[in-house]
Amino acid sequence: MNWKIRRFGQAIFTVWAVMTLAFFLTRMMPGNPVDAFVARVGPELDNPQEAYELAEIYMNINPQDPIHVAYVDYMASMLQGDMGMSMSQNDSVAAIMAEAIPWTLFVMSWAIFIGFAVGISIGALMAYWEGSKFDVALTGYATIITSIPFYVLALVLLITFAYRLNWFPTSGRRPEGVEAGFNIPFILGIIHHAVLPVFSMFVASGVASLTMRGNSIRVLGEDYLRVARLRGLPDRTIAVQYIARNAILPMYTGLMIAIGSMFGGAVVLEEIFTYRGMGYYMIQAVRARDYPLMMGAFTVITIAVVIALLIADLTYGKIDPRAGNEDHDAF
């Protein structure tokens, strides 16, 4: 029980540290964004004092306050979900994020799901036919695909299937001219737009299949498998409860870590496909020197990663009885 509280404490600490970092980067850096903002906006206004108020609206930081007061204010508004106003998008950061996150989650979860599902199946087959031509060929495939950075694959896919073959749209996240809502053309359109980004993340399947192969081969040599066969258990039980479960289990944490790193991957991927998710807005923010949006996206991504890892840790004990209530680190 106690280690759960501890994990939780660590997660909260990480989030707090990231927010604090964001604050100090915005406020304390030489030529910091707040001062720059005031310097830029101030002269255009009738009353230059208003620039400070605007700064507070946009960034939650009033440069005139003493640093500790500014910090407390900043944290307070962050906790309320107020991440300031975007300077380039003309909307609150929170609103932009709320709108973008579902799209990112949509693409990422499919990417991870398909990647792992394919990886696990291939890995299982490789283990089943260990040493055969099939195994050798697929091991080769997995090794190669693992070593390709996902953005290279993304570019190759984009050039081939979108520009050359015109099978998929080159950018965007939803069909144009179709009424948004729960109708078939719209849903198909969304899927159509998501295919390439999802398959760019296919590289994850390489790692997954190699891990699965190794795990399965290990499990196939276990004594409990031999005993299970002697006990005359049906093949299906053996395959599912004995082999698959024990082989997939150790990959669970890997999956959660993959989720964490995929948010990072989303930044590059969404830029390549001009897919308006969180990562896309983050790059836009960097381009436009839109600090509130940038920091907002950064904070949200961090929190997402921390939550994914926290879930991995807290649920691992449920899935693997051995991890149970011990002081266990899932990763």
Binding site: Y224, A228, Q241, R245, P321
Partner: peptide
């Protein structure tokens, strides 16, 4: 029936002992 050396690893680590008995009986 047979009992062999690797008792330490003769059970599926993710299943409770009871399941091992039930599985065997129902098989």
């Amino acid at each position: 029936s047979m009992v062999f050396q690797g008792a330490m690893s003769s059970f599926n680590p993710v299943l409770p002992i009871k399941t091992h008995f039930v599985e065997t009986l129902s098989a």
